[in-house]
């Protein structure tokens, strides 16, 4: 036990400062899981930032998407940092698109988004009668 604690302390002292700095610049990972109202993952859903043109598909197995940063159309990078409000649009075919705002934490950023199915009610549509299309009798014209 003592040996382990000493070994860890030693490793921390010897770690590369550059790596530490890189870790801080990478951004915080945010994981988004898209499910339906029953909790089942929606494999066809996509996640995107409102300003972004690309659509990020989720994992077809578990319906998740994760990233540490997003890249805007103007080439800028939106890094996820703790404390920032991250706006995301989550959509899927046949489901109502959801816009979420998530405050990024230092760690364990897991966001579950439940999408609602678009219900289109079948209204009482009247079906027109198919006519027999009989010829109309012409009146005799005087020439």
């Amino acid at each position: 036990m003592k040996f382990r604690a000493l070994a860890l302390l030693f490793a921390g002292l010897l770690s590369d400062p550059a790596m530490a700095a890189k870790k801080e610049d990478a951004g915080v990972e945010v994981k988004v899981q898209v499910v339906d109202l029953k909790g089942e993952p929606i494999p066809t859903s996509v996640v995107r930032h409102p300003s972004e043109s690309d659509r990020h598909r989720v994992n077809s197995e578990d319906g998740t998407w994760k990233a540490t940063a997003l890249y805007m159309p103007d080439g800028s990078e939106l890094r996820f940092t703790p404390g920032m409000d991250l706006e995301l649009e989550v959509s899927a075919p046949g489901y109502k698109t959801q816009q979420v705002v998530y405050q990024v934490r230092k760690s364990r950023n897991v966001l579950q988004v439940a999408l609602e199915v678009i219900e289109i009610t079948e209204e009482n549509v009247e079906e027109p009668i198919i006519t027999f299309k009989q010829d109309k009798v012409r009146e005799a014209t005087e020439e």
Binding site: V46, R48, P50, R55, E89, S91, A92, P93, G94, Y95, K96, T97, Q99, I118, E119, I120, T121
Partner: peptide, 14 residues
């Protein structure tokens, strides 16, 4: 309302 929901879903944004 239903048309808007369909449009936003297909377009991805409002």
């Amino acid at each position: 309302s239903a048309a808007l929901a369909l449009c936003v879903s297909a377009a991805g944004n409002a």
